[in-house]
Design a protein around this nucleic acid. Structure first.
Length: 476
DNA sequence: GCGATCACGTA
DNA sequence: GTACGTGATCGCT
């Protein structure tokens, strides 16, 4: 049975930047009588009473803010959907996970040995401080950048140092292996429950942009980019014999949202023609036909497109591409020359945040940005980037949530046995009997593509596999 | 045991 | 440059 009202979710929509949802605090905020704190029967009863009184106050506030339909038609129905996803969980091959652990352990010991041998003594390789002493003290390597407490030893720094000291490459290997074993093998193993499945918690009131988050464990950050880590996905399997995993993900959802909001002709055109967006951007920015775009040009254009979503600065783009600020500034300049609608859109969002104090998504979700008026430049700039990014990231979240509600409603009515397991921001993961795939595809891809009508088509790509590693493109 | 810090995984 | 969560270390209580 679906809950009718959740005070925390109401409070989240009214201000998604809040971090606590204590009834005592909400009561004060909405002008109710003071509620006693503590765990005495009186305090507990007081909170129950206050929550009852809060309901009409929160409901009126939602209506006044134009958030009622988002609350009633998307967020509340989603509560039950997420609860079911959590209860269902995802099956994990314990044996395979443990085998990966043993293999990683072996490799870690070997790499560690090699490093200690070269350094001449042992130390705690997991301590950035001790590592810094070795690299910048004993070995006399140059400090590339600093954290607030000392020299930085992050991957970016180590990659640069590796050019002059091969040992550093081994330290990078060590970091990768330890991360995989610690977070994804030793971290996940104890969370496999008696049913052979891992049950995450989807948090619906944490992310200020409207996204979900996943914790205990976080199943939204399972490695995929690097092959080494990607292998972790092999242990995530369908929970019924003969079943498969089915995934559907939005293609370039955030840039499509930018195209919709900005109305920029070139961007709209690119998506209407279903072009490779990074290649098209490279062609525009470098002034060549799409056929003549080189991999390097595309790589740079891709960074510009990402930067765009994040509210790019010349400084940030320069860092991402490892180029000078002047050159980065030129790229951005050229981008805005070719995509003037995007430039105008970004300026408009910052202005809106200044005037109204908040920005909104397509479905009216709002995020307050009080720091848009900060006296400190860096703090203010951060708020300006959030003003640009939130409507984009948040609208993508709106779309996905709306699709999830529609999909689950239809799935329930369909008699299909397929189950929704995970949401990873722009992707949904199901387990299903293979014979249901054609119907599941139509249902899921159809609802995702038609969740909202934008000025550009929404594109969804489907994949199927015997585990979360072996996912191959699927069309019925 | 707790919190800050650093580092690093995802979209 | 956006948004998250987790693990190890380290200094503190």
């Amino acid at each position: 049975p679906e809950p009718a009202f959740d005070g925390a979710i109401a409070a989240y929509l009214l201000n998604p930047g809040r971090t606590v949802y204590r009834i005592e605090d909400l009561a004060r905020e909405f002008g109710l009588p003071e509620v006693p704190e503590g765990e005495t029967p009186g305090a507990v009863a007081g909170r129950a009473g206050a929550l009852l009184a809060l309901r009409p106050a929160l409901e009126s506030a939602l209506r006044e803010a134009g958030l009622w339909s988002l609350f009633a038609e998307i967020e509340m129905p989603l509560v039950g959907i997420l609860a079911r996803m959590e209860a269902t969980g995802i099956a994990v091959q314990r044996e395979a996970l443990e085998e990966m652990g043993r293999e990683l352990e072996e490799r870690i010991l070997a790499v560690q040995q090699e490093i200690f041998q070269r350094v001449g003594y042992t130390f705690n390789l997991n301590s950035p401080k001790q590592l810094a002493d070795v690299l910048f003290g004993k070995m006399g390597l140059p400090v590339i950048k600093r954290t607030k407490t000392g020299p930085s030893t992050d991957a970016e720094v180590l990659e640069e140092l590796a050019l002059q000291e091969p040992l550093v490459e081994r330290i990078l290997d060590y970091r990768t292996l330890v991360k995989l074993k610690g977070t994804y093998v030793d971290g996940l193993a104890p969370l496999i429950e008696a049913d052979g499945r891992i049950h995450t918690t989807f948090n619906q009131t944490v992310a200020a942009t409207g996204r979900l988050s996943s914790a205990d464990p976080n199943l939204q950050n399972i490695p995929i980019r690097i092959e080494e880590g990607r292998r972790i996905r092999k242990v995530f399997i369908p929970g019924e014999p003969g079943w498969v995993l089915f995934a559907a993900d939005y293609s370039q959802i955030e840039l499509r949202v930018v195209a919709h909001f900005s109305g920029d002709e070139a961007l709209l055109d690119a998506f209407r023609q279903d072009q490779d967006i990074h290649t098209r951007t490279a062609a525009e920015v470098f002034g060549v036909p799409m056929e003549e775009v080189t991999p390097e040009m595309r790589r740079r254009a891709k960074a510009v497109n990402f930067g765009l979503i994040y509210g790019q600065s010349d400084y940030g783009l320069a860092r991402a591409l490892g180029i000078g600020r002047g050159e980065a500034k030129e790229f951005i300049q050229r981008y805005f020359d070719r995509y003037p609608g995007v430039k105008a859109y970004m300026e408009q969002k910052v202005q809106e945040a200044r005037e109204k104090g908040y920005v909104t998504t397509l479905l009216g979700r709002r995020r307050f940005l009080p720091e848009i008026h900060a006296r400190t430049f860096a703090v203010r700039q951060n708020a300006e980037r959030a003003a640009i990014n939130t409507p984009i990231q948040g609208t993508a979240a709106d779309l996905m949530k709306k699709a999830m509600v529609a999909i689950c409603r239809r799935l329930d009515a369909s008699g299909l046995r397929a189950r929704l397991l995970l949401q990873v921001h722009d992707e949904l993961v199901f387990e299903a009997p293979p014979e249901e795939l054609p119907a599941l595809y139509e249902l899921v891809v159809g609802e995702m593509e038609r969740a909202l009508t934008l000025r550009v088509p929404l594109k969804v790509e489907a994949k199927v596999g015997r585990n979360w590693y072996e996912m191959e493109p699927y069309t019925p």
